[in-house]
């Protein structure tokens, strides 16, 4: 799967979970930049990403995701 394709799928997931129809993802985007992206919705995002990409994260992966870019890299490493 291409990086752009991953970003597109991720954008759809983020928009759905965070209830933000116009959200645009960028590599540098962090939870601090998006209202409603908090520790509660974060785990819903993780769970949705796992289902959508058929991957499994480890707890250690989560700790290393500092922004959307890290998240995409982690997903790529699991595909």
């Amino acid at each position: 799967m291409e990086r752009t394709e991953i970003t597109n799928v991720l954008t759809a997931i983020f928009r759905k979970i965070l209830a933000k129809d116009t959200l645009i993802l960028s590599d540098n985007l962090t939870a601090n930049d998006v209202e409603n992206w908090d520790s509660l919705t974060h785990m819903l995002l993780i769970s949705e990403i796992e289902t959508e990409f058929s991957i499994k994260f480890k707890l250690k992966d989560l700790n290393k995701m500092r922004n959307v870019g890290d998240m995409i890299e982690t997903i790529i490493s699991k595909l």
Partner: peptide, 25 residues
């Protein structure tokens, strides 16, 4: 508590989605 208790718990319960989050909370 979020980093060392809530996150590991909600991660462990993540397949239960929102119910897992409520339990972790």
């Amino acid at each position: 508590l979020t980093d060392y208790v809530y996150t590991p718990l909600s991660f462990a319960f993540r397949k239960y989605r929102i119910s897992g989050i409520v339990l972790a909370l």
